[in-house]
Design a protein around this nucleic acid. Structure first.
Lengths: 149, 149
DNA sequence: TATTGTTATACTCTATAACTATA
DNA sequence: TATAGTTATAGAGTATAACAATA
């Protein structure tokens, strides 16, 4: 306890989590590239596979992007028939978005490849740490606010 | 096991880690702001407090920044006497960097505030998950490469 | 000639503002 | 007039290239 001032017990959380996130994204990149998907395109496929979403703005919000940010992404996905994107007959201003069969297949293929790699990566951890890590990660990443003050 | 295709057991790691990192950085921001530090300036103070570093390029590399990126940061820190930055008498091309007493004090103050907040945040986790999380995080964030292929 | 640090430039990503079409 | 989507523009952040000083 006397030497507490000399060095810290652990690095700040952000100092560990942010670089880890960057490394994980970089590690996913080759897999996404192999299937012609950007990170945003993959995020769209993942999100659309959960629950149907009504507006593009809501989709953008859900994946943490700007509504203008995803338009080119949707253009590309629709052109490749990975998603459908049709005006809502009830309100022709909104575009209804949904995965096509090919879109769901691609999503499953890519995610399986990514999670296979992740499982292999996680084997470096002791079993107990590993399950605690995953549980903690899910808990923390679903917290609504997260303030330190 | 039959319903594996319908939804995945867990989100991709990057899908949890990256947003968590962003949230943690955002949560640190008010504390950094209160002390007039940017994230990069804080990263510099943290790094310089560990082991003396010889060149600016090496410092930039160590904190994951471009060498041109940190020049304005060093200008500001030096002007505020939080770091010293003098030409090496042995090789006048290089600038020797070191924390001043005030720099170390500020570093300690800010990190204490941040880690206090983090400890409070971590209390939402069961004790077992929490220690596993921290151990796993340290292990993964110090891995040299991290590939999924 | 090679290297450190600096400045100037260009590029990428993202957000803001202006526009079209529907309501 | 208000809203969904789109396009055009501007801004932040980052990296690349050119430059000055020193070796």
């Amino acid at each position: 306890m006397a030497e507490k001032a000399a060095g810290t017990a652990r690095p700040d959380l952000a100092a560990m989590v942010v670089p880890l996130g960057r490394a994980l994204m970089a590690a996913e990149q080759p897999i996404l590239d192999a299937h012609g998907l950007t990170m945003w395109a993959y995020a769209v496929l993942l999100r659309l596979d959960e629950t149907p979403i009504r507006t593009q703005a809501a989709l953008a919000e859900a994946i943490g992007a700007d509504k203008t940010r995803i338009i080119a992404v949707l253009d590309d996905l629709a052109a490749r028939r990975l998603i459908s994107r049709e005006p809502d007959p009830m309100d022709r201003r909104v575009r209804l978005l949904a995965l096509t069969a090919e879109g769901r297949l691609l999503r499953d293929t890519v995610q399986a490849a990514i999670q296979d790699g992740e499982e292999r990566l996680l084997t470096v951890l002791p079993a107990a740490d590993r399950s605690g890590f995953l549980r903690a990660l899910r808990a923390l990443s679903t917290l609504p606010d997260l303030t330190l003050g």
